[in-house]
Structures are given as structure tokens and as C-alpha cells.
Design a protein around this nucleic acid. Structure first.
Length: 563
RNA sequence: GCGCCUGUAGCUCAGGGGAUAGAGCAACGGACUUCUAAUCCGUUGGUCGCACGUUCGAAUCGUGCCAGGCGCGCCA
């Protein structure tokens, strides 16, 4: 049974029975956990919402609705209309109806949670919607930096979250392995290679000057010596392009895996060019009147769908722009049958949204089905000062360096814990600290404490009751009730966070669960309590452990048994 | 100039039409012969950037202004 659903239904029936509302359309019943405990277990604002259509003041309306519900609560529990779990409905404030439930509902709730185990929180709220989440998609021209780190952490957490909430999620990395940047990579490696072999070279103006390029060139030189100097320069560049692409891609994959991030699909931009998808897409859009030629170039008429200006897709030199490939890519995404496509981009790309949405609309797809989640910028702070450059490389701090510095769990948690709309001030000292000020360790510590309880229970030969067999009525402390209530919110929390594409809610939620657990732990002994209380608390502890594991798994943060 | 994001406690941020605006850190005072003190309990701390409007009700919605970040290529 789900008390919340039953209660919402009963409220709806009660409101529908009010004379002044006869025939009126009732809004969906909003049930929330009130901000303060004195306001009961749940509250609804329905009377305030109905005040206008009913032409009555909200408190009078609330009294009428609460009266009907209290009458049903007073019925013998065998009556069909009885609400046996309801203790009282009270009107408060400007017209809220607060519901106070009998303790039984918490016991039933804990039994549900215990029975679900680590599956607690799963729901079908996403209804199996086929969703693609594309993120990171960094150019394979160098190492990932901290900005990519936020994308990687948030993207993977969002995918995990949506899976738990019942979406059918596929994650994807778009490899920008065509066009200028990759040519530039090849030219940079080429220059470094020739340098290493003693040639006087002019380094390409827009070349990549990172150390990693020299490393790549050195590996080639170590392996092949001067052999490539004999080759035709264009041919050599082509070979270096392949070598560098493979190496950079492997490094990206390695960095991401070390960060707990994997992708279902690695999609190469090149394949779009090779398979003629770009040409096909342009032809299609020209025929449908969404593209036109002017000044020797081919343009997308994106202004027809709200963009500021039309955009070039094929330059006057015949080379497609990045947008051309992106249009073909999005056509491919939707052709693969995704109901919804989510792109996670850095704030520096937000200006690109309107043209891609326009392209999606021009292709005949609903632009609403393309969601672009913008991540604001990341600033690193150390000793209270902004860290601009990496000391080691003189460039932006790489993700690998960050992981080495603060650890994978702290890095992931810190990236995820803020709203994507907010800039992220990443405090390196805080992330590194192994003290109570660090929220990651605080949560992990709660999990480790529970694991420790179970270790000791086992040593003491205590049997942990099977779900459904624990005497959970033995739980009478307020700290226990608070914990059960909080655990009970988890499925809604997951569903809402997924719907809002807001994984930071899960970070916050996990922290709240940990806080209530630590409080409980300091107040209530588990091992050594009277047998039925001990058994019931073991059941509760297991429920907390499983919920924390689930939440941490969404975040991609480890749930250690020992710390 | 235009567009997007942000402005809430000393600091970092939640909350995004409803009740007395929350959390962590910092500051201050307490709790370890007991399952990990990486913990807990308590206290202090707010003109929700400013103004006007919409509403029974605004931190939340609208408009204007101020401040910060990011964009505004036949770059990606």
C-alpha cells in the first residue's frame, strides 16, 4: 500500500463532494512533506487552490474537506470507506490541511523499504522513455580538463538517475574527429616529430602546444625513427592523424574510466562524412526549402525557427562547417528512435542551442525533444585563491590531476552537488580534507558505520531478521521515525530529480539521510538493545544502508564498508 | 548593443507561487569506560541585489535597473 496515493485519492473525493465545487474541475492533489514536524506527516494546499473557483475562503473550504476526511478516519476499519491509517486532518495557516498519520503507516513503509532492498527508489516514472544522453564529447586533441570533469560527472549521474527512475537510457560520446581541430592535431604532432629529429620547423600558428603532443611525437619517433621523414608530407600527416587520434581517444577513454564514466556508444563524426550523411541531410533540407545557396555557400534558414541569423553549413570553399555535421548527427540520433535526446554542453556553447534546435525542427522533428543541459563554468580554488593554471603543465588543470589530488569520489560529488545552472567553485582543500567538513566523507562514513554494525552483529552471532520478519513495531523513537520517513521519500526524490534533470538533488538527499542516520546512531544503540528493538534497528540500519548505496551508486561515488 | 546563467547567513550553496526562508563550512558552548568522535547536541548569524507590478499570498512570476560569469564566426 502507498499511503500517499491513498491519501491523495481520499482528498480528491472529499473535495469533489463539496457543494460549492459541483461540476468544477479539480486540480491534481499536491501532497508535500511539511516544512515542520508540528504540521504533521503530509500537507496539501488544495483548499487554497480551490478558494477562487468555489468562491469561498480557503480556511472554510479546508475545514469542510478535513471534516469529511476525519469522518472517514473515525469509521471502523472494516468499513469500505474507512481510512484506518489516518489519525487526524487539521487545518492550519492560511488554509493548509495537515495530515497526522498513525504509527502503523511508518511500519508498513519500512517493511516495503526492507523488502525492496537496494531496489528501493526504482520506479517506472520514466515509463521506459527512450532517452539518449550525450556528454563530454571532447575533441580528441588533448587531455580532459576540469570543465569536462563536471560534464562527465553530471552526465553519468544523470544517466544513472534516469535509469533508476525508469527511463531507457543510452549514453553517448560524440568524437569530433573530422575537420580543423584534428588536422591541427596532426600538424602539431608532425611539427614536434620533425623538431625531435633535428629539423628546423615553424610551429603551426593554431597548433596545440601541450606537453602531451611532444610525448606523442616522441613515441612515434622512438618506434619508427626518422622513417616518416621520407614520406610525402601529406601522406605523413594522414598517418599522424590516425596515430594521434587513436592515442588521444584511448587516453580519453582511460581518463573517463578512471572517473567511473563509460559510454554505451562512441560515435565518430567521420562516419557521417564517410557515409554521405551530411550530403544526404543537406539535400533533404534543400528540397524541403530549409537550406539555400548564397555567396557561394549553403545556408540553413534557421531564422525560420527562431535563430538570430541564418547559418552557413557548407562554406564557399565546399568544406562543411561543424554545424553541418551536427545537423546530420542529430538527424541520425532521432532516426535511431530516441524519444528524447539530451545534450550536455558547457556554458560557452549555449549560443549554439538555437541553431541546432532550428535544424532539428527543419528536419521535421519536435525541437522540444532535444534538450540541451547547460553546465556553468568551474573555478578551482586552493588556499582561498583561484587556481587558473596547472603548476605541472602550465595549462588548465586536467581531470587526471584533479582526481590524483582529491580522489575520484570527492571530485565526482563536488561536481554533481551544485545545480547545473550555478557556477561551481570547487574548493580543493575542502574536497581533500578527511574531516567532518567534507560532505562526501560524511555520507560515506554513515555507510561505513552501518557496515561496521553488521560486521559486529555477525561476530556476535546475531541473526539479521529477514524483511517481513522483523518486529519493527519496536521502533518508537523519534529519530527512528524521522529516518523511516526520509527513506520513504526516496522514490519520489529520484523521480523528481530525474524529471528535472537535476542529479544534485540526490547528492543533497544522501547528505540528509546520512545526517539523520548519524543522529540516530548517537541516540540509539543497535547492538545490545533489547532483542526485539535490536532486531528492528538492524532492519532499519539495513534499509538506510541500501538506500545510501543506491543514492551513491547514482552519483558514481563508492559506498565503502570501512574507512 | 543582444542572448543565456547567476545574485539568498561571514563563506559555498539549496529552495523557484504558500506556513516562522534551509543546509554545510566558519564562530561560540557542550557530549567519547558503550556498535568508528570522519560523529552528535546546543547557540549565534538573513532588507532573499534594488524598484515597480501581478496575486488572497512573491525569495519564487512579469517589467525595468544594478552587479558578476559565459556567449554573440563561412572556429569547434
Amino acid at each position: 500500500m502507498n499511503v500517499k496515493v491513498l491519501l491523495a485519492g481520499a482528498i480528491h473525493e472529499a473535495a469533489a463532494g463539496i457543494e460549492a465545487l459541483a461540476g468544477a474541475e479539480l486540480p491534481a492533489v499536491m501532497l508535500e512533506v511539511p516544512p515542520q514536524k508540528e504540521f504533521g506527516d503530509f500537507a496539501t494546499n488544495i483548499a487554497m487552490q480551490l478558494a477562487r473557483p468555489a468562491r469561498q475562503n480557503p480556511r472554510a473550504l479546508a475545514d469542510a474537506i478535513a471534516g469529511r476526511l476525519n469522518a472517514r478516519a473515525a469509521l471502523d476499519k472494516h468499513e469500505p470507506a474507512a481510512l484506518p491509517w489516518l489519525k487526524e486532518a487539521k487545518v492550519a495557516g492560511p488554509g493548509f490541511i495537515n495530515f497526522y498519520l498513525k504509527p502503523d503507516w511508518l511500519y508498513a513503509l519500512l517493511a516495503d523499504i526492507a523488502a525492496a532492498g537496494e531496489a528501493w527508489g526504482r520506479s517506472d516514472s520514466g515509463r521506459g522513455e527512450k532517452v539518449q544522453v550525450e556528454f563530454v564529447s571532447a575533441n580528441p586533441t588533448g587531455p580532459l580538463h576540469v570543465g569536462h570533469g563536471r560534464g562527465a560527472a553530471v552526465g553519468s549521474a544523470l544517466a544513472n538517475l534516469m535509469r533508476v527512475a525508469g527511463y531507457d537510457v543510452s549514453t553517448e560520446f560524440y568524437i569530433n574527429d573530422a575537420g580543423n581541430q584534428i588536422d591541427c592535431l596532426a600538424a602539431s604532432v608532425d611539427a614536434r616529430y620533425r623538431e625531435l629529429l633535428g629539423q628546423q620547423v615553424e610551429f603551426p600558428e593554431d597548433g596545440y602546444r601541450g606537453r602531451d603532443i611532444i610525448d606523442t611525437a616522441r613515441r612515434i619517433a622512438d618506434q619508427a625513427g626518422a622513417r616518416y621523414l621520407l614520406m610525402d608530407p601529406a601522406e605523413r600527416l594522414a598517418v599522424f592523424k590516425e596515430l594521434a587520434r587513436e592515442e588521444k581517444l584511448a587516453l580519453l577513454r582511460e581518463d573517463l574510466e578512471a572517473f567511473g564514466v563509460t559510454f554505451d556508444v562512441w560515435f565518430s563524426e567521420r562516419t557521417l562524412h564517410a557515409a554521405g550523411a551530411i550530403g544526404d541531410t543537406c539535400r533533404q533540407l534543400k528540397e524541403s526549402g530549409h537550406m539555400y545557396e548564397q555567396d557561394g555557400a549553403l545556408w540553413l534558414k534557421s531564422t525560420a525557427y527562431g535563430d538570430d541569423k541564418d547559418r552557413v553549413v557548407i562554406r564557399d570553399n565546399g568544406v562543411p562547417t561543424y554545424l553541418a555535421a551536427d545537423i546530420a548527427y542529430h538527424r541520425d540520433k532521432f532516426a535511431r528512435g530516441f524519444d528524447r535526446v539530451i545534450n550536455i554542453w558547457g556554458a560557452d556553447h549555449h549560443g549554439y542551442i538555437s541553431r541546432v534546435k532550428a535544424a532539428v525542427a527543419a528536419l521535421g522533428y519536435d525541437p522540444e525533444h532535444l534538450e540541451v543541459l547547460i553546465l556553468q563554468m568551474v573555478n578551482l580554488f586552493q588556499h582561498g585563491e583561484l587556481v587558473k593554471m596547472s603548476k605541472r603543465t602550465g595549462q588548465g588543470v586536467t581531470l587526471a590531476e584533479l582526481i590524483e589530488e582529491v580522489g575520484r569520489d570527492a571530485a565526482r560529488f563536488f561536481f554533481i552537488m551544485r545545480s547545473t545552472d550555478s557556477q561551481l567553485d570547487f574548493d580543493l582543500d575542502l574536497a581533500k580534507s578527511r574531516t567532518n567538513e567534507n560532505p562526501v566523507f560524511y555520507i560515506q562514513y554513515a555507510h561505513a558505520r552501518i557496515a561496521s554494525i553488521f560486521r559486529q552483529a555477525e561476530e556476535a552471532g546475531l541473526t539479521v531478521p529477514a524483511p517481513g520478519e522483523a518486529p519493527i513495531e519496536a521502533l518508537t523513537e523519534e529519530a527512528e521515525a524521522d529516518l523511516i520517513k526520509k527513506l520513504g521519500e526516496y522514490p519520489d526524490e529520484v523521480a523528481a530529480a530525474a524529471r528535472e534533470r537535476a542529479p544534485h538533488h540526490i547528492a543533497r538527499y544522501a547528505h540528509e539521510v546520512a545526517a539523520l542516520f548519524h543522529s540516530f546512531y548517537n541516540q540509539c544503540r543497535v547492538i545490545g538493545a533489547p532483542p526485539d528493538v535490536q532486531a528492528a534497528r538492524l532492519t532499519l540500519a539495513a534499509a538506510v544502508r541500501d538506500t545510501l548505496r543506491s543514492a551513491l551508486a547514482i552519483l558514481g561515488v563508492a559506498a565503502p564498508d570501512k574507512m
